[in-house]
Design a protein around this nucleic acid. Structure first.
Lengths: 112, 112
DNA sequence: CATTTGTTCAACCATGTGGTTGAATATCTG
DNA sequence: CAGATATTCAACCACATGGTTGAACAAATG
């Protein structure tokens, strides 16, 4: 497994359960049990999802006694957002028809 | 498969080959063969990646004679970006040192 | 027409993924 | 100490994924 950070982040985000966990972490720290509670899923199952989020660097864990407190770490989300930002012009420039036509012309040559 | 659009988009983005294809599509349309060329991978393999991008709504295909022209469709990227935008405050607030210190104080429980 | 070119399809394979269960490990509490 | 609580670990399962190959199909070309 030589997956890049961006691979791990996007993969972590590609699951609704994990996105839901992140959403709930946005309002404050949660224990593993609290994060798992809303889902019709074993605790071990939810724990795996949290580990995936942790591996992607989206969640930090602080072991506090017998419970593990999880908190959001948004730095990697910022990276993902930055990656997407490159394409921003493709949905904001939508109105600029001239520009689209110019790009069409450019693409006939073969070097990027 | 009852995967939501966001699931499909993030999953499609979680692979470096597919991200690379998108990046190259940002400079103009490409045929399947052109998209596949840079990779040490069979054409059928690359074709599958393109199908994944298409299923996620990130790429549109226009069959033109015997070759299939692919173009970027950024709408779904905009959706993904919007999803991420919710968390923006967590990485822009970072500069607000006072805020960070207040959170720190809360979590300590004892002040020097 | 036969052949080459661009692409997909179908079958297959190894590995990864999301989930389960039952046992193990810590930690708090009486 | 014994027991309850919070969490992980390990083994397992069904299915998806990323890749291969060889054959098939469609369209341009001699």
């Amino acid at each position: 497994m030589h997956a890049s950070p961006l691979d791990l982040v996007f993969h972590a985000l590609a699951d609704p359960t994990r996105r839901d966990m992140l959403r709930r972490l946005s309002t404050g720290e949660r224990t593993v049990g609290e994060l798992a509670e809303p889902f019709a899923m074993s605790l071990a199952g939810a724990s795996k999802h949290i580990r995936t989020l942790e591996a992607a660097g989206l969640v930090r864990r602080e072991v506090k006694g017998r419970q593990h407190l999880c908190r959001l770490d948004a730095a990697r989300l910022a990276q993902a957002s930055e990656w997407l930002r490159f394409y921003e012009r493709f949905w904001t420039e939508r109105l600029n028809v001239l520009d689209a036509l110019l790009r069409e012309d450019d693409s006939k040559g073969d070097t990027p």
